[in-house]
């Protein structure tokens, strides 16, 4: 696609966006959420509420209400979706308790003319839209970044997540695909950090004495800071550690940068994906032709955006971003 074509299509999208306000101003959107018990979900709900409030104030939609089930159970959420149909919502944004057990309720919503957009916890019912996370791509991207920074290659240490969980398998698969592509790298060790700094620190401390020189560490998020601590405790030079957007990781990165010019990349999924789902639903209601399968972009923090990200991330939380209508349009356009 040439630059001029991109400009042209961007102009076209802007034109459609201008029309969008008028067409969906009477529409009501609901968020069906199955769980609110951790910081990621809390951040997700906050982002949805602020996005929704703003959109209602701007007259883009008539209502944007968030509902969370009292118990994290598929049957509860199915009933919740059916209630939303009765309440006359035009679109339901859904973070599902089960990829399959809500399909009946989702189908009923579709049959009643309700737009269903699932994200994060997606549903398999074909009539719904899915905003999925490409975890394998996240793993590949880590190795791609290392390849740009370390063209000579070397030994890598892999920190994995919680064993037996789909996300861990996917990210690891992506990392190994990346290493196969960039043959200058070798994964010489692999430990499970369970996405927790303390577990990662112990695991890395245990394996370090048996490892040769490590030039880079590929991680899954929530484990970078612990890894760095383990390297320091073993008195070994700090390798290039790819981080995962946690506040403690970003803080450590900023300290290292100020002390010795440390440079790395941090990437993960932002809880603000709820706002992306909101805009995708708004676009569908607006009559836009949206592909059923969409992919969430990662939230990447680079050397340039580190200070900004660190300033906006509350302590103990994870870096977040609120997606705009333009971001959603970009995601929709790239899926065409």
């Amino acid at each position: 696609m040439t630059n001029s074509m991109m400009l042209f299509s961007a102009a076209g999208l802007a034109l459609i966006a201008g029309l969008a306000e008028a067409d969906t101003s009477g529409k009501r959107i609901a968020l069906s959420n199955n769980y609110a018990g951790n910081s990621w979900r809390q951040a997700m709900l906050e982002t949805f509420e602020s996005t929704g409030k703003q959109a209602v104030a701007d007259g883009v939609v008539a209502a944007a209400d968030a509902y969370t089930t009292s118990e994290n159970q598929a049957t509860e959420q199915a009933a919740q979706i059916q209630n939303m149909i009765l309440q006359g919502y035009d679109a339901i944004i859904l973070n599902a308790a089960s990829p399959t057990a809500l399909n009946g309720a989702v189908k009923e919503a579709c049959d009643a003319g309700v737009t269903v957009v699932s994200f994060d916890g997606i549903v398999t019912e074909p009539c719904a839209w899915r905003i999925a996370v490409d975890f394998a791509a996240m793993g590949r991207e880590e190795v791609d970044y290392l390849a740009t920074r370390l063209p000579d290659g070397g030994n890598l240490l892999e920190i994995r997540g919680l064993a037996g969980v789909f996300v861990d398998d996917e990210i690891s698969k992506g990392i190994h695909e990346g290493v196969a592509e960039h043959s200058q790298f070798d994964i010489v060790g692999s430990v499970h950090g369970d996405w927790a700094q303390d577990v990662a620190q112990k695991a890395v401390a245990g394996i370090l004495p048996s490892l040769p020189d490590i030039v880079g560490v590929v991680t899954q998020g929530g484990d970078g800071y612990g890894t760095a601590q383990a390297f320091r405790a073993a008195d070994r030079p700090t390798p290039l550690i790819v981080l995962g957007n946690r506040q403690d990781e970003l803080k450590w990165w900023a300290e290292q940068r100020d002390a010795n010019g440390y440079e790395t990349l941090s990437l993960s999924i932002a809880p603000g994906v709820a706002s992306l789902a909101f805009w995708v639903a708004q676009q569908v209601l607006d009559g836009e032709d949206v592909a059923k399968e969409l992919t969430v972009p990662f939230l990447k923090i680079t050397q340039d955006t580190l200070d900004e990200a660190l300033a906006t991330t509350p302590e103990g939380s994870v870096a977040n971003v609120t997606y705009s209508l333009e971001d959603a349009q970009q995601v929709i356009a790239s899926a065409r």
Partner: peptide, 17 residues
């Protein structure tokens, strides 16, 4: 009846029952 409504199952689908 539950599967007839949900169209598919889950090992934890009816714990509330």
């Amino acid at each position: 009846a539950l599967v007839g409504l949900t169209t598919s199952a889950d090992a934890n689908i009816a714990l509330r029952y």
